[in-house]
Design a protein around this nucleic acid. Structure first.
Lengths: 212, 212
DNA sequence: GATAGTTTCATACAAGCGTTTGAAAAGCAA
DNA sequence: TTGCTTTTCAAACGCTTGTATGAAACTATC
């Protein structure tokens, strides 16, 4: 097997297993079995388990951020340089929600891996996380441009809460389903995005947004 | 040392360490060192590590639920059998927020332990968690009584989102502080409760609630 | 096709984990 | 005190973890 094949086989197997079962439950032996490579291959290609996780996290977090910023940019171009607050918030929570809750076809291990990474704070990831703050600041800035009359503190809280709602829906959607006896539909991702965006916009502007 | 002293020393040391560092990072040797008891004492008194965690979780979850229901009951008595939606939501998110974010004096390891338990899903806890759904259903029912004209689905989503906002604020308040360059104040717990309750009520009624 | 450099492989290692053991210590009823 | 139960203790057990080793297999260059 070529060297790069082994590398990518390890990366994608690790990503898939971590996304599905979390970091604590997945051992290197699980990963190499799923990737069908030798146990020593991980240390040979990545140096250590932590460096494997770190490489995965850096790669996927750049990809997620790029996806969000693309949506943000598209929204800004469409709105002539100043996007509507709805579009900004949708760009923030949309990619991850679609990647984690959407139909199987578009579900990505990458998105679910990132959720795991944000939940189970482990040393190799904790060090890199500060970068995400800068990324969120760009969204906060866009929101301030869209709503120049609003208090920056309210905008920060709203951004924080929007992420919270998206995050918890991914993380514990099962509880919501049970609690509502199945009435809350987790399959209609766009409706969830609209709901979260609607509540967030309403929190800022005090006006209800027409439901899509 | 009397038998019960050893038991409670183990329980409170375990709770404190788990609350501070999470389940993955705390070993039995850490716990017995903090409790100043012998390593074998945990297995003697609780049977296994998992049973120790389970006992902690059951005890603390009953206490948390009792605290919430007390607040709910007080709200219902004050409102003559039908409480205001604000009071219901405050009873839901208040106890945990105060226990995790309040001034040191009233901060409780119990509340932060429960947050850990809800984040790091581990086998001994996963089995018991279904009970929480029934607990939340009582709050959903109270909300339906307070707002009889509202769609039950909207109420379930709102309850879910209120918990999400509270939970994430506890879990990742540090990121919010960094992102807002310290402008978002995590020390004023009552203001946070008001903010979460306000957004939730507004999401249901479409009207902004006067800020306290 | 010989040689040098990569990459794979089976196997072993040290360290840490939760748990068990059997004897010593403490508590207590008669 | 005597005898019995409960509780503590130091030590060790078996197992799993991430990592290291050195030989074998492969690849590519001359």
């Amino acid at each position: 097997m070529a060297a790069d094949d082994t590398r990518t086989a390890i990366l994608s197997a690790a990503e898939r297993l971590y996304a599905a079962r979390g970091f604590a439950d997945v051992t290197m032996r699980d990963i190499v079995a799923a990737a069908d490579v030798n146990l020593a291959a991980v240390n040979y290609h990545f140096g250590s388990k932590d460096e494997l996780i770190a490489e995965l996290f850096v790669t996927r977090s750049l990809a997620t951020n790029r996806e969000r910023l693309n949506e943000l940019k598209a929204a800004e171009e469409h709105g002539g340089g100043r996007s509507h607050i709805d579009a900004i918030l949708a760009a923030l929570v949309g990619p991850t929600l679609r990647g984690c809750l959407g139909p199987d076809k578009q579900r990505s291990d990458a998105a679910r891996f990132m959720i795991r990474a944000s939940i189970e704070s482990i040393p190799p990831i904790r060090k890199i996380k500060n970068r995400e703050v800068d990324h969120l600041k760009r969204f906060a800035a866009a929101m301030r441009r869209a709503l120049p009359d609003h208090d920056a503190v309210d905008i920060d809280w709203t951004l924080h809460f929007a992420l919270a709602m998206a995050h918890q829906t991914i993380r514990d959607g099962e509880r919501l389903t049970k609690m509502s006896d199945g009435r809350c539909d987790l399959n209609d991702v766009q409706a969830i995005i609209d709901r979260i965006v609607g509540i967030s916009v309403q929190a800022l502007t005090g006006r209800a947004k027409a439901r899509a």
